[in-house]
Design a protein around this nucleic acid. Structure first.
Lengths: 194, 194
DNA sequence: CAGATGACAGATTTCAATATCTGTCATCTG
DNA sequence: CAGATGACAGATATTGAAATCTGTCATCTG
């Protein structure tokens, strides 16, 4: 574990992710992270002022992976309605797999998001920003009607909460969930059409 | 407290509500309920087989008050779109007030709903049933388009989750919530239109 | 002397002993 | 004898003492 590589914030974040994966949100300590890196815990505090800041940085990394993946759909060449459908389906699919494939890790990150409201708000702002771009394009193309694309983006995000908000994760593996998602997706897209 | 009135399930439920209001969900005990009624706790077990059953019955009473209030809108004489808007606004308003006016009591009932999934499912079935009736009327009048009113009702209920699901209660007192609700309501109604 | 260390104080968590509660049932009472 | 009681066993919750953790900082080291 104690490689001689220089101690970068990046390496600390990786070690923290590993410790969180192993011990869970409740039992992951700064001392554990330091041990994984082969340094004293005082050294970790040299790079991150508090444990909360460290956990916040890890949370941001985790959330950013999703927004980066979805950004590709926004800049793609599909027509706006297809973009919107694929973007929302992609978000649901990503969440569904994160929650279903490794429930323990998902629970860990759910705790992290609960204690890092600011980081989550930034993430949501990024996502609704992407939605706004899609809707603006739709309005420009004459496919969507919206006097205020940012407000419509927020409405679309809110209306699909059940399929991306972690508080609904237990529902995502229930039978009928895909039909329910399709129904909300149709309702939402129809609501935007010109 | 120990009136001589006959000990009906009704009186036990009222006493249980009072004990829950006073002590909260975590500390309300069957012994407390019995004391409030001036009987021994064994007597309470004569009317309700378990504490869980007692709490479930109280939860049902609480939820039923909301569905009964909304049922009046369904059977009213407004056109379907107005009914739908008023019904959803009524649901949001009821929740917003329950949560805002007495946060402690709302937290208590939130715990109760979490431990009584079956009762909540029945409640949701009742509410989506009411929505289905409104949508069916809208389809019959030619105002709404829906190949499957029950599925559309579920979609409308899901799309507006953010404004009736207790897990979002902390959001209901935030600035901008009414604009957000109006935006989702518009999106939803537009999505249903023929 | 830049960067790491580990002892330390106060805050938080753990754990086991103690107290309380749930659900039952033999007994009591009007 | 219908309905209420309260002692009881096992389950659950509370409590406080002990252990661990967070964040600081004087000291050390290459």
């Amino acid at each position: 574990m104690a490689t001689a590589a220089p101690l970068t914030p990046e390496r600390i974040l990786e070690a923290t992710e590993e410790v969180l994966r192993r011990h869970g949100a409740a039992k992951a300590t700064v001392v554990d992270v330091a041990r994984a890196l082969g340094v004293s815990h005082g050294t970790v505090y040299r790079h991150f002022r508090t444990k909360a800041e460290l956990r916040g940085a890890v949370t941001k990394r985790w959330l950013d992976r999703t927004s980066v993946a979805l950004a590709g759909i926004v800049t793609g060449s599909e027509p706006p309605e297809a973009k919107l459908r694929h973007w929302l389906a992609g978000l649901f699919d990503a969440k569904q797999h994160k929650a279903g494939d490794d429930p323990e890790l998902f629970a860990t990150y759910t705790v992290l998001t609960e204690e890092n409201g600011d980081v989550v708000n930034d993430h949501i702002a990024e996502l609704t920003g992407q939605l706004t771009a899609i809707i603006q394009q739709g309005v420009a193309d004459g496919d969507f009607a919206s006097p205020d694309p940012a407000l419509s983006a927020r409405a679309v995000f809110d209306a699909t909460s059940r399929f991306h908000d972690p508080c609904y994760a237990p529902h995502w593996s229930r039978p009928g969930i895909d039909e329910a998602f399709a129904a909300v997706l149709d309702l939402t897209v129809r609501g935007l059409r010109a």
